[in-house]
Design a protein around this nucleic acid. Structure first.
Length: 842
RNA sequence: GCCGGAGUGGCGAAAUGGUAUACGCACGGGAUUCAAAAUCCCGCGGAGAAAUCCAUGUGGGUUCGAGUCCCACCUCCGGCACCA
C-alpha cells in the first residue's frame, strides 16, 4: 500500500466505480424502505463556489448515512433553469438562452461529480426543457379550470431594469430583489394564482410541520399575516348641494371595533376607488387631487424610510358612526394602505398613528378604553393607549371588558346589518406574469370572438420560439415572434393571438420534487401512486433565503394539486433543514457571504486539485454547526487534509497487522482484554453511539467529525506494533474499520479505498452502519469528581457497582476533601452516579 | 417598534441542570533531519512563586450545583414593519 495519500487517483477511481455500479440509482416502484433526500435544485449559473457546496455536501452525507442504515435512498438533482441571467446573457453576447443554460448545466454537473456527490441522474429534471415545462403549462390549465388562475388589471410592482413585473415577495425594501433597482407601480393586465384561497390552510398546517425550524414557520406565519376583525359600514352624509354619490357608505376594516366610540374621523387611502368621486365639485377637490398625486409618487420612497411624516387632507365630506350616530370628518391620509378596504376608522386615543395624525391636524381625541388601573386621563396622554382595558363612554358597552366588547359589538353590527366579522390576510395573490422570454409560456389564447380561451391540453407544450430578438428594453421578446403569437383559437378555430407573458420561475420550482418521481414519463405530469409512496420528502435541505418565497409557493402547489386529486398529502416536506451561509473576509477585511461582487469567492477547482474532494467535504462539514453561518478559513482546510492523511498513514503503516493472516478473524472479546485495549474498544463504541445519535436528531456533522478525531487519538494511544498481542491487534483493527465506516458519509472516496485495503469487497457505501456493542461500554471503575459547595476539590475512583452510600463514603474518606471539611458542618451530600459527589457545608 | 436567534480562550467552536473550554486552527517548546518541509511528543483561558482565586455579554434570582432555567438590561445577526 502506498505511503502517501493519493487523493487524486482514488477520487477519480471511485467516482467512476459508483457510476458504473449504479450505486445511487433507485428503483422507485420496487423500493421497500423509501427515503427521499432532496436538495434545493440550483439555478445553473455555470459555476459553484464552496459556499454553494455546503448544501450538496450536507445532502450527500445524509443520503450516504441513510443508505448505510438500510434505506432505499432517492437523491435526485435537477436545474431551476429558466430565469433572467440567461436572457441577459443573450442580450449581451447573443448566445441563445437555451444554449447558454445547457452549457452551464453540463459544467455544473461536472463540479458536483468532482465533489463526490452522487445523484440518480435518471431522474434529472430541467425546468427549461419542453418535457418539463409542458407539464408546468398543464398544471396552469388545471389551476385555471379550478378558478385558481385568473387575470386581473391591477397596480403591480414593475422593475424598470428587469423590464418585468415582480411578485410582492420579490420586492425587498421597495427595490427589486434581483437587481436592486427601485420598483415602480404600474397598472397592467396580469395573471395571478389564487394563493389567498389557501391562506388559512397554509397557516394551519404550519403547526403540523414538526420537522421544520421554528424560525421558518414564524417567518411564514408573519408573511401570511392573519388578523381577526370586523368590517363596519359608515353611512356617508349627503352633500349639502344635493348632488349624488356613487355609494352611500364607506366600509372600513378594524381589529379594534371595541374602540369605535372613540373614533373621531375616518381616513381613506389615496388610491381608494371612491375618493375622487366623493370630492368631485367640493371646494377641497383640487387640493385632494394634488395630494393623491403627490402620495402616489412617494409610495416607494416611503417604504424605505423608517418613519414618514403622516400627512392628509380633509375631503369636505362627513360620515356617520353607526354605533352612536355621531358625524365624523372624512380625510385622506398617506399612511393608509389599499389593504382590506382601504379605509380606516381613526381612534387617536388608542392608535399611535391616529394619535400623531390627530395632533398634527388638530382633530378631536376621545377616550373609549380605560386601563385596568383606571389612571388614563385624556389631557395628560402623550401617546395612544393601545393595550387592553375596559370600555368607557361607549354607550351600552361602557364597563365591558374590551376583548368581550369586540365580540358583542361585532354581533350587534351583524344583527343591525351595518357590519360583519371578518378575517383578513396580509398575503396577496401570487402574480405570475413576467414580460420576459426565458420562462414557460402561459398557455392562454386571445380570440376576437371567444375572448380569453385556454389552450387545448393536446397542444401542449406551447414551445418557446427561436425567431426572437433580445433587446435590453421594450416589450417581451415573444411579442415580436409572429410564429409564436399567431395561432388558431382552441374554441372556434379562428385567427387568434397568444398570451405573450411567461410564468414566474417560482412556478417551475413549486412542483419539481413531484416530477423527480416520474421524470421520464411523457404521458402524465405526476405519477400519483409513486408520489404517494415517496412523498412527503423525508429530508429537504436548502438555504434559509427560500424560507418564504419558494417554500410557501411549494406548499401552496402541493395543496392545490392535492385538491385536483393527483396526490394524497397536504405538505411536501416533512423535515426541512436550512443550512447557514458560508462567509469569507473580503479584501476590505469584513465578513461577507461569498459572492463575486465582494471578491471573496473560493472556487473549488484549486482546492480539489491541491487537497482533493474528501478534504473539502470534511472541512465544510467540520466548519461549524451546519445551520449556522460559518467563516471559511484556508488554514482549516489544511487541518482537514492533515487528518485524512493521518488516517491513511495509520492504515499504511500497520497494513500487515490490519490485513495479516496471523490475526484470528473474530470480534473483540471484552473478557480477555487488557485495560488499554478495553479503553480503546470502549472509545470505539462510544464514538459509534455518539455519532449515530447526533446524525439522527440534528445534523451535528461538526461534532461527529470531532468524535472521529478523538477516536484516532485513542487509537494512537494504544501504540500498536508487530509484537502486540492478538487481542490488541483485533481491537486496533476493529477501531480502524469503524473509523472508515464512520467517516464514509463525509469523506467517501478515502473510505472506499481504505475499505478495500482492509480486505473488504468494494462498496463501503453499501456496508451496514456500525452498531454499538453494549458490553464494550461497561466499566469496572468510574472516575468521579468530588465537590465541596459546588467546587471540584478532588477526583476519586469508585467501583461501577458501588451504591450511593458507598460512593459517599469513598468521597468523604478523601484526604483532600477532609481538609476542606475541617471545622465545617456537612448539611447535605448529593451523589450523581457516574458524575460527581457534591458536599454542601456551612 | 414587533417576532425569532446568538453572545464561551488568540481564532472556528464543544458541553441530557452535574468536573466549562472536547475537537480543530494558530502559537510556544522538544524529538527526528546537514537543514527544512512533513511527521511524532509536550504545553497552551487569566492572575499568582505556590496554595489558591477569577473567568461562558452585564446585573439580579431559583438550585446542593447554572454556559444551560427565570427576571431585567446591553450588543450583534435575521425576519416583519404605517396591515388599522
Amino acid at each position: 500500500m502506498q505511503e502517501n495519500y493519493p487523493f487524486g487517483d482514488i477520487e477519480t477511481k471511485w467516482q467512476n466505480f459508483w457510476d458504473e455500479n449504479g450505486d445511487f440509482k433507485t428503483d422507485l416502484a420496487a423500493a421497500k424502505n423509501p427515503y427521499y433526500c432532496l436538495m434545493m435544485f440550483p439555478y445553473p449559473s455555470g459555476k459553484l463556489h464552496v459556499g454553494h457546496g455546503r448544501n450538496y455536501i450536507i445532502g450527500d452525507a445524509v443520503a450516504r448515512y441513510k443508505k448505510m442504515q438500510g434505506f432505499d435512498v432517492l437523491t435526485p438533482m435537477g436545474w431551476d433553469s429558466f430565469g433572467l441571467p440567461a436572457e441577459n446573457a443573450a442580450i449581451k453576447t447573443g448566445t441563445p438562452p437555451a444554449e447558454y443554460t445547457l452549457a452551464n448545466i453540463a459544467a455544473m454537473k461536472e463540479q458536483l461529480r468532482a465533489w463526490g456527490c452522487m445523484y440518480d441522474w435518471e431522474k434529472e429534471v430541467t425546468s427549461c426543457l419542453p418535457e418539463y415545462y409542458k407539464w408546468t403549462q398543464w398544471l396552469f390549465l388545471q389551476f385555471y379550470k379550478k378558478g385558481l388562475a385568473y387575470k386581473k388589471n391591477s397596480n403591480v410592482n414593475w422593475c424598470p431594469s428587469c423590464a418585468t413585473v415582480l411578485a410582492n415577495e420579490q420586492v425587498v425594501d421597495g427595490c427589486c430583489e434581483r437587481c436592486d433597482s427601485e420598483v415602480d407601480q404600474k397598472a397592467m393586465d396580469q395573471w395571478f394564482f389564487k394563493i389567498t384561497d389557501y391562506a388559512q390552510r397554509l397557516l394551519d398546517d404550519l403547526d403540523t410541520l414538526d420537522g421544520w425550524p421554528t424560525r421558518v414557520k414564524t417567518m411564514q406565519k408573519n408573511w401570511i399575516g392573519r388578523s381577526e376583525g370586523a368590517e363596519i359600514d359608515f353611512p356617508i352624509v349627503p352633500r349639502a348641494d344635493g348632488a349624488g354619490d356613487n355609494v352611500d357608505k364607506i366600509a372600513c376594516y378594524t381589529t379594534r371595533v371595541d374602540t369605535i366610540y372613540g373614533c373621531t374621523y375616518m381616513a381613506l387611502a389615496p388610491e381608494h376607488p371612491e375618493l375622487k368621486n366623493l370630492v368631485k365639485g367640493m371646494p377641497q377637490e383640487a387640493e385632494v387631487l394634488e395630494f393623491i398625486k403627490e402620495s402616489s409618487k412617494l409610495t416607494n420612497l416611503d417604504r424605505e424610510a423608517d418613519e414618514v411624516e403622516k400627512e392628509g387632507r380633509f375631503t369636505g365630506r362627513y360620515l356617520v358612526n353607526p354605533y352612536n350616530g355621531e358625524q365624523i370628518e372624512l380625510w385622506v391620509g398617506n399612511y393608509v394602505l389599499m389593504y382590506g378596504t382601504g379605509a380606516v376608522m381613526a381612534v387617536p386615543a388608542h392608535d399611535t398613528r391616529d394619535f400623531a395624525f390627530a395632533r398634527k391636524y388638530n382633530l378631536p381625541i376621545k377616550l373609549s378604553i380605560q386601563n385596568p388601573e383606571g389612571s388614563l386621563v385624556l389631557a395628560e396622554m402623550k401617546d395612544a393607549y393601545t393595550e387592553d382595558g375596559t370600555c368607557v363612554d361607549s354607550g351600552d358597552f361602557s364597563g365591558v371588558d374590551n376583548r368581550e366588547a369586540i365580540k358583542q359589538m361585532t354581533a350587534l353590527a351583524e344583527e343591525k346589518g351595518f357590519g360583519t366579522g371578518k378575517i383578513n390576510f396580509r398575503l396577496r395573490d401570487w402574480l405570475i406574469s413576467r414580460q420576459r422570454y426565458w420562462g414557460a409560456p402561459i398557455p392562454m389564447v386571445y380570440c376576437p370572438s371567444c375572448g380569453v380561451v385556454p389552450e387545448k391540453e393536446e397542444n401542449l407544450p406551447i414551445l418557446l420560439p427561436t425567431d426572437v430578438e433580445f433587446k435590453a428594453e421594450g416589450e417581451s421578446p415573444l411579442k415580436g415572434s409572429a410564429t409564436f403569437m399567431n395561432c388558431a383559437c382552441p374554441q372556434c378555430g379562428g385567427a387568434a393571438t397568444r398570451e405573450s407573458d411567461t410564468m414566474d420561475t417560482f412556478v417551475d420550482s413549486s412542483w419539481y420534487f413531484l416530477r423527480y418521481l416520474s421524470a421520464r414519463d411523457a404521458s402524465q405530469a405526476i405519477n400519483t401512486e409513486i408520489c404517494n409512496k415517496w412523498m412527503p420528502v423525508d429530508q429537504y435541505i436548502g438555504g434559509i433565503e427560500h424560507a418564504i418565497l419558494h417554500l410557501l409557493y411549494a406548499r401552496f402547489f402541493t395543496k392545490a394539486i392535492k385538491d385536483l386529486g393527483l396526490i394524497g398529502f397536504d405538505e411536501p416536506f416533512k423535515h426541512l433543514f436550512t443550512q447557514g451561509m458560508i462567509c469569507k473576509k473580503g479584501p476590505d477585511g469584513n465578513l461577507y457571504k461569498m459572492s463575486k461582487s465582494k471578491g471573496n469567492v473560493v472556487s473549488p477547482e484549486e482546492l480539489l486539485k491541491q487537497y482533493g474532494a474528501d478534504t473539502v467535504r470534511l472541512y465544510t462539514l467540520f466548519i461549524g454547526p451546519p445551520e449556522k453561518e460559518a467563516e471559511w478559513q484556508d488554514t482549516g482546510v489544511e487541518g482537514a487534509s492533515r487528518f485524512l492523511k493521518r488516517i491513511w498513514r495509520r492504515v499504511a503503516e500497520n497494513h500487515a497487522i490490519l490485513c495479516g493472516a496471523d490475526i484470528p478473524v473474530c470480534p473483540p472479546d471484552v473478557e480477555t482484554m487488557e485495560a488499554p485495549e478495553r479503553d480503546l474498544y470502549r472509545k470505539t463504541n462510544e464514538t459509534i453511539q455518539q455519532i449515530t445519535r447526533g446524525l439522527d436528531g440534528a445534523f451535528t456533522f461538526n461534532t461527529a467529525i470531532a468524535a472521529i478525531m478523538e477516536l484516532m487519538n485513542a487509537i494512537d494511544a494504544l501504540k500498536i506494533s508487530a509484537d502486540s498481542s492478538d487481542s490488541a491487534k483485533i481491537v486496533f483493527r476493529d477501531a480502524i474499520v469503524n473509523v472508515v465506516l464512520l467517516i464514509s458519509p463525509f469523506a467517501p472516496h478515502i473510505a472506499e479505498e481504505l475499505w478495500v485495503e482492509l480486505g473488504h469487497a468494494p462498496g463501503v457505501m453499501n456496508a451496514d452502519w456500525p452498531v454499538v456493542n453494549e458490553a464494550a461500554l461497561k466499566r469496572d471503575e468510574l472516575d468521579m469528581a468530588v465537590q465541596v459547595n459546588g467546587k471540584v476539590r478532588d477526583q476519586i475512583k469508585v467501583p461501577a457497582s458501588a451504591s450511593q452510600t458507598e460512593i459517599e463514603a469513598i468521597a468523604m474518606a478523601s484526604e483532600k476533601i477532609q481538609t476542606w471539611l475541617e471545622g465545617k458542618t456537612v448539611r447535605k451530600v448529593i451523589v450523581v452516579p457516574g458524575r460527581l459527589v457534591n458536599i454542601a457545608v456551612s
